[in-house]
Write a protein that binds this DNA or RNA. Sequence first.
DNA 1: CCTGCCGCCTGCGCGC
DNA 2: TGCGCGCAGGCGGCAG
Length: 321
Amino acid sequence: MTSPRRPGPVPELPEVESVRIGLLPHVSGRRIERVQVFHDRSVRRHTGGAADFAAVVAGRRVVDVRRRGKYLWWALDDGDAILAHLGMSGQFRITDITSAPLPVGMLVGDASPDPAAGESARAVQHPHLRIRFSFDDGGSDVDFLDQRTFGAMAFAPGGADLPDAIAHIARDPLDPAFSLADTVTAIRRKRTEIKRALLDQTVVSGIGNIYADEALWRARVHYARPTATMTRPVATAVLAAATEVMREALDAGGTSFDALYVNVNGESGYFDRSLNAYGQQERPCPRCGTPIRRDAFMNRSSFFCPTCQPRPRRRPVSASR
DNA sequence: CCTGCCGCCTGCGCGC
DNA sequence: TGCGCGCAGGCGGCAG
């Protein structure tokens, strides 16, 4: 029954934007009647804890779903907001109202598999269910599921336009107010390597390990290239590549939504067909045929073509001439 | 102030 | 067969 299943793509900007678009019609205009928190860690960013989160959110009306980088938030009609980050494995799911409703008592407490829990409870309750939102129209619930609990939700007073908690997050490349020129300046001002800068959400947001590697492959830039040595055209090319690859992923993934199932583990198609570097070690570079290499980087991995993306020389050429 | 490392989490796959 | 470990990785916190 529980067939082994590869984890879906880690949600970066395109996946979060797909979730935003998919979620919008299911929450916009609806009034939250009841909130059930099944795992304290999923509200760890909320001051006051699970009970307070549930109490403060109940009765609120959602008017919009907004996003910056990998964060999204439900804007409420009174100017407050409910902030969410999917982390590594967060999902929103719209419950199927045609299935039998759960007895109320079954929903209290932690939803993790519990040997002491009743058989029927385990049969109907998803083990990764962390928060459930019910609405006063009696329609579908909205569930927040998160296997690894890196994700979280929090109430954000006055946060409808932009929650205070994420004021430090830079605009992302799909934001109409995103400034390519300013971001190039910010990157070149840093004293670090280009991939670290791409992953720094205070420089440019929305880019994670996957799209960083894909952008660098497209721009033919090595991940360890010092940002301080990058010309404006090179830095611009990297950012343009990041924007392109995320836009393409969004276009590929945005069409695969089931109306009742909004998540980031769906068959986006993008990850099966369109990755040129990420996860492709040993396979030939689509441009030159050289096997893609995998290097350890920041306690994880960087995938790159050693021919198209040669490691930068230690020093500028000034000494050699 | 700036940079970079660590810990938080769970489940899968691999080596012994 | 079973156990331990590495790996996946975004982000806040914190050390230097």
